[in-house]
Design a protein around this nucleic acid. Structure first.
Lengths: 197, 197
DNA sequence: TATTATAGTGAACGAAAGGTCACCTGTCAA
DNA sequence: TTGACAGGTGACCTTTCGTTCACTATAATA
């Protein structure tokens, strides 16, 4: 039960921090959203900053689990259609999974204030994706699905435009459908340019 | 002299908001950074929010002046080397101009809180650049410098990776040189792929 | 059953926030 | 010369913040 509340506090904190930022969040409201009174929070965390650090710990651990290790790399697609499908599956997950969306928002808001948030932001927004797709593109080139080229450069050229539209969805959710269509179009264009027919 | 202080307040506000965000900024400190005492601020703006709105007005006006009108579109390059040079000139400006950097940071931090910041963020980070390069690429295709393709798609594919690295520079300034080299490499790769030799 | 740790309450605290106000002072027009 | 006003000061106000603490109900433990 204690563990439960402690976890629920982190979940509520992610929610509020992602909407109002760390400074804009106050403990009273955070407690109220859990049906608690503010002093109750302090039975589980010694300060607001401790909540923030615990949340960051969890985000870092979660990222490490899901994207950090080589075992979690996706399989290299067997065809260009597979590749397109895989891309859209990943995009839909990352746009619609609330926890991932909130994580991106928090990292966006706190990247200039907290060093660990800054580092995780760079992984989330840039290097994590390019590393993953560098691996995928290397495999696809080996299978003869993609023209021989610098896989890291192609990964960078492929993931950053998609990332830009994911950020657009975070900012303006009403443009989600349009953004997804644009990602699909971009993906097709990319395959048209670099795929081996 | 009054006008002067009013402007100086906005400049200081941009500075503090871009570092600590709107919520994290307090009027006492803002005033102190101008050699004033807090009540002095209220001779020029009626509230903290009024400062914020005036700053946004200025940012919106500035953006409109510099990027909003057709007259301010850059000339279409006459060669692929010209194009590469123009790209790097624009990149260096946008990475090193302090006011532009601070504007990006403020928009990043406040995009979820303020609707006008949200809209301006989308222009700054996405549509402004793609629109400009759509125009440039159309012109370059007409001149036979680029292969015939969808200019809007190429503009999107060209500007968003560069944008991603500009954001990296904002977040981790110590990586600026590396990022600029990467932009140059990406630009060359793009020209290699879509340029007409 | 008696005890003790756990999780929660509600009142209170000091600090810091945004904002107001009476007052001062130098500039400039009537 | 005088009066109005713009621009700045310092004391003070209210609210809200994060945090603390004495206390209580509950549920597991000795």
């Amino acid at each position: 039960m204690a563990k439960d509340t402690k976890e629920r506090i982190l979940t509520a904190a992610l929610d509020m921090f992602s909407q109002k930022g760390y400074e804009g969040t106050n403990i009273r409201e955070l407690a109220a959203s859990l049906g608690l009174v503010k002093s109750g929070i302090y039975k589980h965390y010694e300060s607001k900053e401790a909540i923030w650090n615990a949340l960051l710990d969890r985000m870092i651990a979660y990222y490490g689990e899901r994207f950090g290790s080589a075992e979690h790399l996706p399989p290299v697609p067997d065809s260009l259609e597979d590749f397109a499908t895989m891309t859209m599956r990943m995009v839909n997950l990352t746009i619609h999974d609330e926890q991932i969306v909130k994580t991106r928002k928090v990292l966006t808001l706190e990247q200039y204030r907290d060093e660990r948030a800054r580092d995780l932001a760079t992984k989330h927004f840039l290097t994590g994706l390019t590393d993953m797709f560098t691996y995928i593109f290397s495999g696809m080139m080996a299978k003869g699905l993609l023209k021989r080229d610098d896989p890291a450069m192609l990964a960078f050229a492929y993931t950053t435009p998609i990332s830009a539209l994911i950020h657009l969805c975070d900012r303006e959710p009403e443009k989600t459908e349009e953004a997804i269509r644009k990602i699909e179009a971009f993906s097709r264009h990319f395959i048209e340019t670099y795929g081996v027919k």
